[in-house]
């Protein structure tokens, strides 16, 4: 969470509301914030830390590990219509990639604004594709991998 908190401003600049969620109580969140997070990140975690005691929310999102009683690492991007546009679920030993989260948010925001689908690895400013009958079988002519 500290790594997301440290770069929260980048998501805020994209008008994204961020929530973290674990099975810890809100009281535990408070102690973690005061005793540790605030010492790792200036000001501590700036977004709401949700308490999911019992794992009810984790179950709704398919990330609750019944055996261990915890929510595993899952990340969801929800658009302004309340539609889930992306989800990433990882087993515990591997952490998230913040750059990839930001890239996906930017790409989904671009698609929502323009209707232009973004090809693999797209970054803002890079080429998008116009789908249609003319493009079928001719992507190789207009777009190269890594472009």
């Amino acid at each position: 969470m500290a790594s997301v908190a440290a770069r929260y401003q980048e998501l805020k600049d994209l008008d994204v509301e961020v929530f973290s969620c674990s099975v810890d109580s809100q009281f535990t969140h408070k102690i973690w914030q005061e005793q540790e997070l605030s010492k790792m990140v200036s000001g501590g975690v700036p977004f709401p830390m949700l308490s999911d005691t019992g794992g009810r929310v984790g179950k709704l999102y398919g990330v609750h590990d019944e055996e261990n009683g915890v929510n595993i690492r899952g990340r969801f991007i929800i658009d302004p219509d309340g539609i889930i546009q992306a989800m990433e679920v990882l087993t515990p030993p591997v952490g998230r990639n913040f750059e990839e989260l930001v890239r996906q948010v930017k790409a989904f925001q671009h698609v929502r604004k323009t209707g232009e689908p973004t090809p693999a690895g797209w970054q803002p400013g890079k080429k998008t594709l116009q789908p249609g009958p003319d493009l079928v079988g001719r992507v190789w002519e207009v777009w190269k991998i890594g472009e």
């Binding site: 969470m1 500290a2 997301v4 998501l11 994209l14 008008d15 994204v16 509301e17 961020v18 929530f19 973290s20 969620c21 674990s22 099975v23 810890d24 535990t28 969140h29 102690i31 973690w32 540790e36 709401p48 949700l50 999911d52 984790g58 999102y61 990330v63 590990d65 261990n68 915890v70 929510n71 595993i72 690492r73 899952g74 990340r75 969801f76 991007i77 929800i78 658009d79 302004p80 219509d81 309340g82 515990p92 030993p93 591997v94 952490g95 998230r96 989260l101 948010v105 989904f108 925001q109």
Partner: peptide, 23 residues
């Protein structure tokens, strides 16, 4: 916090195993 109160904005939810752990 009710999630639907934030519909109309982009939202990111990050689940994680527990406080005081770091990956």
């Amino acid at each position: 916090i009710r999630l639907s109160d934030y519909f109309g904005k982009w939202i990111v939810i990050c689940f994680y195993p527990g406080d005081f752990t770091f990956v």
